[in-house]
Each structure stands twice: as structure tokens, then as C-alpha cells.
Write a protein that binds this DNA or RNA. Structure first.
Lengths: 243, 243
DNA sequence: CAGCGTTTGTTAAATTCCTTACATTTCAGG
DNA sequence: CCTGAAATGTAAGGAATTTAACAAACGCTG
């Protein structure tokens, strides 16, 4: 965050303290930048500034249980993610236990689970848990630990005792990088630990990513491509060998 | 205004008291009418219901002059709870590790923690964690487990390994019932397990309740009065012996 | 039960918003 | 002064919202 951006944000907050709601276009004018910049400022400023259909308001205004609409972080490639998840959801049977990885991709999977499915879902990210809790008929198991704001997830530096006593039919993993040689990678090392642990326990492992991730390489390696039973993108299911 | 419309509006208001923001399309589905009808209901109801870019929210959220009845409707005795927490927050030192119980009471405690305090907070309820995550400088440790929608909390049927490796300076407990003879009680048995575990580990234990809880008795017992170092209500701090 | 005004639903067009991709600018380090 | 990364601007498409007009259903009244 540059000094200029911090200053813009501060000015915006000040404006919000006087007028509860400011329209995007007006804010852009007042701050002397483009609407796109204001948009981007807000996207990197969850928690303080809320954004709703073109209108900006102080996040404090909306403080109960944060509705997902207010998760202002830009969810890039959302359409592709949703489509990939539409393919992935077909892997779920109505009474199974599944693992759902953190990140924005698999949020869409949660939404797509049919309402009458009586599944048990294991997760370790707050936004995933929050989304799961909106659905009826789902038993949620959360892996706790220390919270990591960057991914809204928890890292169990301790043993995942609970995992040992749960049979996982299918694990749905996400990744920030997918590469034929270097396998699946993510941004944060603590995530990699959880992913690996789960992959060792699940009967089936599916990598669910939008195709923009293919060819990319991130810091934290967690599995080679042949560690997955299938790779699911917006184009459908593919064998991990085909990468 | 017809009776049916008044009823719809009341239902909508009730929905808003639970979920601060509802999308137009979702509201239409929940109310069993078309989006256009919801739109028209809102148009003739400015002042109570606000509408912004496809999203419905309580007018109190965005209108400074609007009455706060809405905000307090969902959380009874909110003012007393906030006051009790204002007393409780003084027990926290800037670098301590604290435990925060589930329920609506201690949400206020989170809000009242000074922003520059570098504390570590242990919790096991999703709404508490979510609220904690809004604050900078707080390290959050979450106890996972199976989710219980009624209290938004998790029950670790397994050992809380992580608790053993954390030193808890102060534990802030809430209760649904406080009685001189029968001690502190809550609604759910799984909560009692966590509370007892924590109370055994924390250096200081504070019971934070609004005074409406005094004299009440609930199903799940978790501690006798002398198990607490102090009982904090909206009237201030009191010795547990005084009950 | 016919008539009439009100409420509600449906559709289509106009507007606005969101995402993506790419061009441009800025700025710090070499 | 050059270079590369980050920040910002621009534009196009697709998606969502808004508005308006009209049709259908409802409820009351005579």
C-alpha cells in the first residue's frame, strides 16, 4: 500500500463519517481518481469500508454477521470458478463427508451443493464455514488453530486429531498455481500443511481451479499432479496426467 | 396498506434483524413474492427499510437519525451487555492472552478492545472469530470441532490440544443463568465442556452477564459461583460471594 | 356476481454496474 | 537516465439493476 493510497483511503473514511453513503462515481470525483481506482482501494480494505452495488458505506454500519455480499475482495475469474465448481459438485454423493479447501474458488462449490444433501463438510477457513452455515442439512467440522487473515484460514500447528476420526470421501482442493512439473502450489505454507494432511486421508482428491492458474507457480508446494484423482476446471474434468 | 403487505414488511424486518443485508432476489424468494413486489414494499416504507443497489438493509444501518430499535431488537439487553463489557475490558492488559466465550454478550467485549492492544484471543464461536478478525493487532486462536448452529459455536469432541500450549491470562465467560446456589448455567451441554476446560487453565476467570440472567437456571451447569474471580454486570464488578 | 380500484406479476428496454484485459503512468533502484 | 514493478486509467463485454408499461389476479362493494 502506497502512501498515496493510504491517504485516499483516509479521505474516503472521513467522507463516510459525514455522509453515511457515497456513490462510487461521486467518490471517484471527490478523490480525483478513476472509479476503478476507488474500486481497487475498497477491495484491499475489507473490514473498514463496505461496498454494495455501486454505493460505498462504512463497514461499521453493517456489523452483524458479515454478509457475503460485503466481502469486497475482488473475486477474479469468478465465472470460471463457478463453472469449475459446477463440474466438481457432481462428485458429491448425498450422504458423504467431504473436505473443502480455503480460497474463493470453493465458496462456489458450497453454494452449488443441493439443499437436500445430508453431507458432512470439513473446512478450515472462516469464509467457507460461514457459507456452509447458511445451508441446512450440512454438518460442519471446522479445523481450528491460529488465524491467518490473508486467507481467512486457520493453521493447526497441532495435530489434527479430529481428522483421524472422520472418513473423508472426497477432498476438494484449490491451488494458486498448477504446473505439470512442479505440481500444485499455493501462497501460504500453513495451507500446504493442511492440504497435505487431508490428501493423505481422503479417498478421492480433486483439484478444482480455474484455468488461469495453469502454468503458474507459487511459493508453497503441496502435491504433485499425480496426487490428484482428477483436475477440474471450467472446461470439465481432466486427468492429472494431461498436464 | 393491506394486511398482507404489512405482514410481508414485518417478516422482512425480522429477516433484517438477523441478517443485516438481504439481496432483493433472496428476499423475494423468502417472502414468496416477486422481486417487483418487494421493491414496491420498500418504496412505500422508506425510513424503516433501506435499499441500495439490489440489497436490502435496515434503515438504521445507513441513517444516523434512524432509531436504534432495530439493532437492539435481535440482541436483547444489548445496552446492559455493552456496559458490562465496558467494565470487563478493563481487566485486559495490552499484551495478554484471553479467552472469549460464545454468545452475544462478549461480542461487545471484542468491540471494546483498544485497537493498539496486541493481544491473543482464543475463541470457539464463529461470530466471535469473525468479529475479532476485523481488528488489527489481534492474534486469533480458534477451537474447531463440530458446528452448532444454535450458538454459532464449535464443540471439540476431541482434546483441545492447543489449549495446553497456550497460557491464558484471563477467561471471559458468559452464561444464560446465574444463581447463588446452582452456579452458572448455559443452554448447551457442549458449551459447558469448553467452559470448564478453559476455566481450569486460565489464571483468572470472569463471568460477564447482564443482570437479567441473575436468578435464572438453565440446563447445562458449568461452574459454581466461587469458580469465578469476579462477576461483572452492567453495574460493575462484584464478588461471587455476594450472590 | 358484476364492476372497479388495488395489488401483484411479467416483460422489455434503458441504464448502471462488474469484470477482464490491456495501455499508460508513476516511482524507486540500479 | 534506464528499467521493472506497482499503480492507475481506459474500454468493452457481459451481467445485474431500474424503470415503465401492461396484463392478470385479488378484494371489496353494491
Amino acid at each position: 500500500m502506497t502512501a498515496r493510497k493510504a491517504q485516499r483511503t483516509a479521505r474516503l473514511m472521513h467522507l463516510l463519517s459525514e455522509r453515511r453513503v457515497i456513490h462510487l462515481s461521486e467518490a471517484a470525483t471527490l478523490l480525483g481518481v478513476s472509479e476503478m481506482t476507488v474500486r481497487r482501494d475498497i477491495a484491499t480494505n475489507q473490514g473498514q469500508i463496505a461496498y454494495l452495488g455501486g454505493h460505498i458505506l462504512a463497514a461499521a454500519e453493517i456489523d452483524a454477521d458479515a454478509p457475503y455480499e460485503l466481502a469486497t475482495a475482488a473475486d477474479s475469474h469468478a465465472a470460471a470458478k463457478r463453472e469449475a465448481c459446477a463440474h466438481a459438485v457432481r462428485k458429491i454423493r448425498p450422504d458423504e463427508t467431504i473436505f473443502i479447501d480455503c480460497g474463493t474458488t470453493l465458496i462456489h462449490l458450497v453454494d452449488l451443493i443441493p439443499d437436500d444433501y445430508q453431507i458432512t463438510a470439513i473446512c478450515y477457513a472462516m469464509n467457507v464455514a460461514e457459507r456452509l452455515s447458511r445451508k441446512a442439512n450440512i454438518t460442519i467440522i471446522m479445523l481450528g488453530g491460529v488465524y491467518h487473515p490473508a486467507s481467512a484460514s486457520f493453521s493447526g500447528t497441532h495435530d489434527f486429531d479430529i481428522l483421524k476420526s472422520v472418513g473423508i470421501n472426497a477432498a476438494f482442493l484449490s491451488a494458486a498455481g498448477v504446473d505439470a512439473k512442479r505440481g500444485a502450489t499455493c501462497e501460504h505454507f500453513h495451507e500446504a500443511v493442511v492440504k497435505q494432511k487431508v490428501m493423505g486421508l481422503a479417498r478421492e482428491n480433486y483439484l478444482v481451479v480455474d484455468s488461469s492458474k495453469i502454468g503458474k507457480l507459487k511459493r508453497a508446494f503441496f502435491a504433485p499432479m499425480d496426487g490428484f484423482d482428477a483436475v477440474i476446471t471450467e472446461h470439465g474434468e481432466a486427468s492429472p496426467d494431461s498436464f
